[in-house]
């Protein structure tokens, strides 16, 4: 039961929580503001920044001069592609482990998870050399494969924890009503599994979108996603705050919105079901 809370107490908490929340969010808010300023105004003192005129100039420049769309499309292809490929491999595996658990299911699950704990830098050299020899450096296919492999354990785990919650009795009931295996999967299991699959997809796209070890090391230009695009701004060339802000906002906005919708699933996915 919710406890009755005195009004002044609630007001104080409201004030404190909003101040802290805005402080944490401030860097994002600040680049959002800077992205609508001219370069000259963006580096001025904060008060001047706030009062200066709004302009869409930086967005124009980023769009026209820097191939932004190609990087954006690469990010989309890499994150969506690796997620779909991951799903195709993971759904059957998670399904089998959840509904036909054997003696070794637990060990297999834990072993899959352990592959995630391998530090990427430990296998950087061989992967780099294999990619070089196979002509996969700076290719989307190669990177989709790498991103699929590094996120596969998380996809399988998340799906497994969702599938396991589907009660077996429902299947029995369907069977008693004369449903065959096909009807069982199509009309009973699939609708119940879709929410779990959807949150898995969402979380995995976020993780793949923001992945910045392999995407930085294995791409140069052709297959480079937004992580690489933003990193190219690290060499300062004169005044570029407004453009960097506009590029940053365009790189994080889609994921920020998706992330806000998936905050609950995030806890589950990133703790491998250990905290729900």
């Amino acid at each position: 039961m919710a406890r009755a809370v005195s009004k002044p107490r609630k007001l104080v908490f409201t004030l404190v929580a909003w101040i802290i929340g805005l402080a944490i969010f401030f860097p994002i808010l600040w680049i959002f503001i800077l992205s609508f300023k001219s370069e000259g105004n963006a580096i001025a003192a904060p008060f001047h920044v706030l009062t200066s005129a709004f302009t869409l100039e930086s967005y124009h420049t980023v769009f026209e001069r820097s191939n932004y769309l190609r990087y954006f499309m690469n990010s989309v292809i890499l994150s969506v592609g690796s997620t779909l490929l991951g799903l195709i491999i993971a759904v059957p595996a998670a399904w089998a482990m959840a509904f036909v658990p054997g003696r070794h299911t637990k060990d297999v699950l834990l072993w899959m998870l352990s592959t995630k704990m391998l530090p990427p830098v430990g296998v950087l050299v061989p992967i780099y050399l294999i990619f070089r020899d196979m002509g996969l450096l700076d290719s989307r296919i190669g990177l989709v494969f790498v991103l699929t492999m590094i996120n596969l354990p998380i996809i399988i785990w998340m799906l497994y924890t969702y599938f396991r919650e589907i009660p077996g009795e429902i299947l029995e009931a369907a069977r008693m009503d004369g449903a065959g295996l096909k009807e069982e999967v199509l009309y009973v299991l699939t609708p119940m599994a879709i929410p779990g699959i959807a949150s898995t997809v969402l979380l995995n796209i976020i993780l793949a979108w923001n992945e910045a070890f392999w995407t930085l090391n294995l791409t140069a230009a052709k297959a480079a996603p937004l992580t690489q695009f933003i990193a190219s701004y690290s060499s300062p060339e004169g005044l570029f705050y407004a453009k960097l802000s506009a590029a940053s906002i365009m790189a994080i906005a889609p994921i920020l919105i998706m992330g806000w919708f998936s905050q609950k699933q995030l806890v589950r996915g990133l703790t491998f079901g250990a905290v729900k």
Binding site: L11, A17, F25, I206, N210, S234
Partner: peptide, 28 residues
């Protein structure tokens, strides 16, 4: 704690997690 606008403050607080590493590093 109960306070006004809980949902929004929660969203503000978790936002940095979704910012890609290269963006947050360069912005800071």
């Amino acid at each position: 704690q109960p306070f006004f606008g809980q949902g929004i403050v929660r969203i503000l607080v978790i936002a940095p997690f979704f910012v890609m590493p290269t963006v947050s590093a360069l912005v800071w």
